[in-house]
Design a protein around this nucleic acid. Structure first.
Lengths: 327, 327
DNA sequence: ATATTTATGTTAACCGGTTAACATAAAGTT
DNA sequence: AACTTTATGTTAACCGGTTAACATAAATAT
């Protein structure tokens, strides 16, 4: 691998001059600039970013911790985050915490050692104190981490309200709220519970009954069984609000198994609006989180923090209802 | 941020001694080791991996380039790759090429500059020559890149055979092969075409007719329309082999739209066995690629290459049939 | 008592860049 | 002719570690 001294030698200039060309600093004549570029091209030279990062004390790397990239929500999240980060000149280091507190802690340590400029937490199981002496820009995504850590989220309360409003308008009179338990994407129910609060607020006014099911297993097949059983025990349920599209997909499967017609006999509404929502059949009515905008905002806030600016602690974007064929 | 000199000072030893403790080299007494560890803990010291990487000329970072992490196949891929990489002490730098040749080239350049120890290509649009002077361990995943670059794949030919065998056994007599066109996950049909070859080989023997549909659009809704139209024009089709589970999900939607009963009137088999396969209803019969094992192998081969060992050029793992409810 | 092993320190070079300070000379300006 | 500006070079320090070479002294072994 060619290094800067090789380029200098080949171009017949000093290392300082090459560095000046590289960093666009000081006076450089066009002729010299050309000579240096030519030498770089001939040697196939690429400056060692490790060395530059070391000197600048800035790596232009951002750590991203999610429970699992394989989950549709987090895979979309990762996609957009990477996309915006790249546009702004940042690279993304991917970490899957599996919601394991030990792994999460190790990842944070690892990211610090590797001098990332900031961490985006899509996962969160650590205690609040753990974050205190972290001494690094953090943004938490859709999860409350600690009161003094900036949060990017969407209007979960309104999401819940939109869901129940729609179901009520569609004449449902016996609703159910089904959400993932531990291991699911909303284990830390802090924010998902806003969804629930919004959901029941509408119901109270309309005096409509509801029941809830929390899925214990993280296994897909087993979830379907849990839902089937629940719907048998609550045969009056004619409207389901699922806390994620993935769970809604399982509700659809359970309904098929029970030969319940969707949307005639039972209506289903999901949450997130990830790709699966339009991949299942019937296509899923859902509350759309503006993932793309949330990601853009997350990167913008992250960069502001890296540059030493203050950023608002709560950043909440609006959600919207996407009506498809399950309602 | 504390540095090694701070630790040395606090522990009352020399920097060399701290380094010896850190790297387990040379003679160190238990007492000194303890002193050093204590100082580290008190200062909350983490060695700067950038500096270590620079000196060692090894970053322990691997670049992963995929078309889009948000695609279910690549999100599972990324998950397992990260998992194994982490176990082996490597970090993953995530890149979404979007199948854009310019972006792919820029990513490769970026990864080189950042001194990654190797690159895993889940995407591939570059020309063969581009890879020649790359001078870095590469492994391509499920995509033929160049004859001299190691490849990890699964038995696509057998996958195609298993699919047609099953459909034939299930009494289908008019088959269709539906695959994604440009923009889809199998744009570079090199390997997916093995699937097709395996698929038609069985058909030839059994003298069964088939037709093919290549989806032009990358838009989900539009795909469904294309499939609906195709199935209307080929109303005799009673068995469909889709080149991915995502496409199979759209076939299911098209069938629902046409009120074709699955599996009674038409049978569908997908490919990959990603999470969506068991999320759609009816749950999808599919050819399972051993993604997890492929990822494990990929990381193992990558590390071998990094350590200077030779690795086989073709690494093909067996596929298996997962029968669910669409056949 | 001597030789060897163990434990630590000092010094300096190195990884591959960046940069400040200062020197020098040519080109441009007044 | 004197003064600026532009263009480049030299030298050396620095980012935060690692390491080889050599020195020294205490603890062990013979």
């Amino acid at each position: 691998m060619a290094k800067i001294t090789d380029v200098a030698e080949k171009a017949g200039v000093s290392v300082t001059t090459v560095s000046r060309v590289l960093n666009n600093r000081g006076y450089i004549s066009e002729a010299t600039r050309e000579k240096v570029y030519l030498a770089m091209k001939e040697l196939n030279y690429q400056p060692n970013e490790l060395a530059r990062s070391l000197f600048r004390r800035k790596s232009n790397m951002i750590g991203l911790i999610v429970p699992k990239v394989s989950h549709p929500f987090f895979s979309e999240l990762s996609y957009y985050l990477e996309d915006y980060a790249y546009q702004k000149g940042y690279k993304l280091l991917l970490c899957n915490s599996n919601r394991d507190i030990t792994k999460e802690r190790k990842y944070i340590e690892m990211l610090k050692k590797n001098q990332v400029d900031g961490i985006i937490m899509g996962s969160q199981v650590l205690d609040v104190e753990d974050y205190l002496n972290l001494n690094l820009p953090i943004i938490s995504f859709d999860r409350i981490v600690a009161k003094n850590i900036p949060l990017v989220t969407s209007d979960n309360f309104m999401g819940g309200k939109l869901a129940s409003k729609l179901l009520i308008n569609k004449e449902c009179r016996n609703l159910a709220y089904i959400y993932g338990g531990i291991g699911g994407p909303h284990h830390n129910a802090l924010l998902a519970s806003d969804r629930f609060q919004g959901f029941i607020e509408e119901l109270k006014e309309a005096k409509i009954k509801y029941s809830t099911l929390v899925l214990e297993s993280s296994d897909s097949d087993h979830n379907v069984n849990e839902i089937v059983q629940f719907l048998q025990e609550h045969s009056e349920v004619d409207g389901v609000f699922a806390s994620s599209d993935v769970i809604a997909a399982r509700v659809i499967q359970a309904c098929h198994q029970l030969k319940k017609m969707i949307p005639e006999e039972i209506k289903i509404i999901g949450y997130d609006d990830v790709a699966v929502a339009s991949l299942v059949s019937p296509r899923l009515t859902t509350i759309s989180q503006p993932i793309q905008r949330m990601c853009k905002l997350t990167i913008e806030l992250m960069i502001k923090q890296i540059e030493g600016e203050e950023v608002p602690l709560v950043n909440c974007l609006p959600v919207s209802l996407i009506e498809r064929s399950t309602t």
